[in-house]
Simulated assay, not measured.
Amino acid sequence: MFTKHEPRFALPILLVLAFFIPTFFITPSLAAAVDESLSSPYSVSQAIANQDSTVKTVSGYVTGQPTSDNTVVTSGYPNDYAIALADSPSETSNAKMVYVQIPSSFRSEFGLKTNPSLKGKKITVTGTLSAYFTHPGLKDVSAMFSGNDSPEPETPWVGSYYDSASGKSGLALKNALHQIIDDHSEISYSNVWDALRKTDEDPNNTNNVILLYTGRSQLKTMNGSGVNDWNREHVWAKSHGDFGTTLGPGTDLHHLRPTDVSVNSTRNNLDFDNGGSEHTEAIGNYYDSDSWEPRDSVKGDVARMLFYMAVRYEGDSGEVDLELNNQVNNGTAPYHGKLAVLLQWNEQDPVDAFERNRNEIIYDQYQHNRNPFIDHPEWASAIWQ
């Protein structure tokens, strides 16, 4: 366990350059290679034949979990650390499989211990063609997608929506974004239940939602106040500004997420920071008397939700003025921390497909405004330098 303020990991710089930076920052030859990989992913047989340490996108069917160079288990999965892919869902020959090492940020969604129903499903993975368990493999994975479609390059949201923010930074950028996202449709707190059933739907099981802190897939109808139910978590704690569940900040879907009732109770109104004791039910989450540290794969999600709230709610039109600071124990003051840690988490846990899908649903079906920091995560450091 790390102590407070100590970052856990850093994104591999080469993968950031190869996958996340817009193509106008990439040399023409590298941009062409990235685009080609995305539009024409390798088959598993191609990946096995080209173990040359290049970054490639590979599509295949999940056949099990590799536990050694010649063993792939198909049930009783020991953990979420790896999967085996083949060109056929019924493949049993290890020689025709590629082993994928799953980074921590993707384990809750693609690990077989947590998601045994993934066996036989087709997924697409971007990573480095390099041996794993001394077997043809994919390591340093930067993207994983379910289904038959190839992943799309992670480019900023296009259109005229953000035109007025172009070229700005600091307070000018913050003000411009506030004006863009300020006006939106509001829903009642009772209607948040049904909205979360859509925004947080499990992509592998449409009957379920994914709970924020535990990563557990749970029946959409298993909500309420029971100890194992899910309820509505205000990621920006509603006592920080004392806005409760009123229209506006109290019902804003961009920071409301389904969470386990007892885990939500433990998180309570704690600020966010690194450190503490691991939660016995929400493994990978840590807490102490003044802060909560979410699991690695949603650290960036939490940061970008708080960035949104600090920009959307600026005290105009009679609303509360929410601001980020570098403190904990903010209590009922309209502040949330710690900003420096949130900026680290924004870098460490990049935007994923689940976040982008939430943003689209909220924009299209409910509030008709967007979270700018999902579309442009780089704007966080441009505002809070």
Rank of each mutant, 00 (worst) to 15 (best):
S75F: 05
G215N: 05
E152D: 15
K299P: 03
D252H: 03
H178Q: 07
V58D: 00
E281V: 10
P350W: 07
A49E: 12
I48L: 06
N359K: 04
N208R: 09
S29P: 10
E91V: 11
E6V: 13
I362A: 01
Q367D: 00
D35Q: 14
A84N: 03
H234F: 04
I48G: 00
D183A: 15
N207V: 13
H234L: 03
M1D: 12
G147R: 15
H368K: 07
P41N: 09
V125A: 04
K174I: 04
D163L: 12
S188A: 13
W345Q: 01
E314Q: 15
V261K: 05
R197S: 04
N329G: 10
V55I: 15
T71L: 14
T74I: 11
E154F: 14
Q327E: 11
W379H: 00
E360A: 13
I374L: 06
D242A: 15
G159L: 08
P7R: 13
A333W: 09
I26E: 09
G111N: 03
T67Q: 10
S297K: 12
E319V: 08
Q179K: 15
S190L: 13
T246P: 02
Y162K: 04
L211Q: 02
R267E: 00
L85H: 03
V192I: 13
S169A: 11
G111T: 04
I123W: 04
G60M: 07
N94M: 12
N325W: 08
F373T: 02
G315T: 09
S291K: 06
A31Q: 10
L171S: 15
A333L: 14
M222I: 13
F243H: 00
K139P: 01
L324F: 04
D242R: 15
N346P: 05
F19C: 08
H376Y: 09
P41L: 05
E152W: 14
D316Y: 11
F133K: 05
K220S: 01
N346L: 03
T23R: 14
D149R: 15
A131K: 11
V192N: 03
W384D: 00
S190C: 13
I21P: 05
V100D: 00
E152Y: 15
N115W: 05
P334M: 08
T259R: 06
N359T: 04
N148T: 13
T71H: 14
L212R: 03
S225P: 07
D149P: 07
T92R: 13
G318L: 08
V125S: 05
T128Y: 07
V209I: 08
N369Y: 01
V73D: 01
R304A: 02
P78T: 09
T251Y: 00
S265M: 07
H240F: 06
V209G: 02
P372E: 01
P78S: 10
V125I: 14
Y61H: 08
V328H: 02
D194P: 07
P66V: 08
A353E: 06
A18C: 14
G250W: 02
G137V: 04
T199K: 02
V209D: 01
N264D: 04
K113A: 00
D260C: 03
V351H: 01
L85I: 10
H234P: 00
R304Y: 01
M305I: 05
D229C: 09
G120M: 11
L38R: 10
S160L: 11
W157F: 09
A382G: 08
I21L: 14
P350Q: 13
A165K: 03
T199V: 07
P7C: 10
G60H: 06
L171A: 15
D163G: 07
F2I: 14
